[in-house]
Amino acid sequence: MVNQLDEKTLIENAVNGDQSAMATLVDSHSARIYSLAIKLLQNEEDAEDVLQETFIIMLKKLNTFSGKSSLYTWLYRIATNLALGKLRSKQIVNPNEDINNLSESSYLGKDIRKWVNPVEKDQDQSIMKSCLEKAISKLPDSYRSVFIMRDVEKNSTRQTAEILGLSEANVKVRLMRARLYMRDRLAENMKCVEVITT
């Protein structure tokens, strides 16, 4: 990872055709962009497409980069839009009925009476990892995007709404439901949690 001052020089050099500067910029940001694409798309082949398209656009349009945001933020937006475009073009019918059927009365999720930090409880990490990965892959795209952008990538509600083309209220509702869906799937696999079944 290069620092911001070095990055500014690298961008100037890359715009002037310096191939070494271009390579350094690509090398510096490609892992994060690939990781983002994997999280949003849940598919390695599609994530690689998005990765390549993002950096093709970067090299073509770097002269238009204003520098008002960081280069990563600029790339992040390009990659997110490409990933969302891919998801839309596939028009995947959402197979996850659980989350769509949540009514207002059940929006607080399962009735969990007892929750012990599973790390402190020394619960098997591989089981938790596996059930969280399964849960994130089962989340509908529109919920997973919000969860990743808000809770993992730390975007604000407003930024997430802008990037995804949603209202802020819609982002909040989807985020709340996505978190609860993840928590409830985790709870089902945890010995230290007491869930009341109604």
Binding site: N117, R179, M182, V193
Partner: peptide, 9 residues
């Protein structure tokens, strides 16, 4: 529980 889930993820 919700905070812990997000942290774990």
């Amino acid at each position: 529980s919700v905070e812990e889930t997000v942290k774990l993820y």
